[in-house]
């Protein structure tokens, strides 16, 4: 009985890396977008903490992150089709 440990290991590592990367990128993108939401909030309860980053930078960061996610999704589609 031959168990293909090598491909099992590959599947595990690739899955882990890609899943964590996608979730992390989306999370970062949402952190970036949050900066915008907070900047727009007028008269909300202010805990005194400064916004984590400036809104323009936040939007840019989230744009980059979401582009990277889009690239991964497109690659996933390519893998499905090919």
């Amino acid at each position: 009985m031959k168990i293909d440990w090598a491909s099992l290991g590959t599947v595990a590592l690739v899955s882990l890396a890609v899943s964590v990367a996608v979730v992390a990128l989306v999370s970062f993108a949402l952190v970036g977008l949050s900066a915008r939401a907070r900047a727009n909030a007028v008269g909300g309860p202010d805990d005194g903490a400064p916004p984590p980053m400036n809104p323009a930078l936040g939007t840019a960061v989230s744009g980059v992150c979401l582009l990277a996610v889009a690239a991964i999704v497109v690659y996933g589609l390519y893998v499905i089709v090919a």
Binding site: V20, V31, A37
Partner: peptide
Amino acid sequence: IAMLATYLAYRTTARADDGTVKKGF
């Protein structure tokens, strides 16, 4: 894998805007 990803998602967005995070996910 899902556990790590979930943990990461909550940690990363812990101090982000709640509405944005909910809508985004």
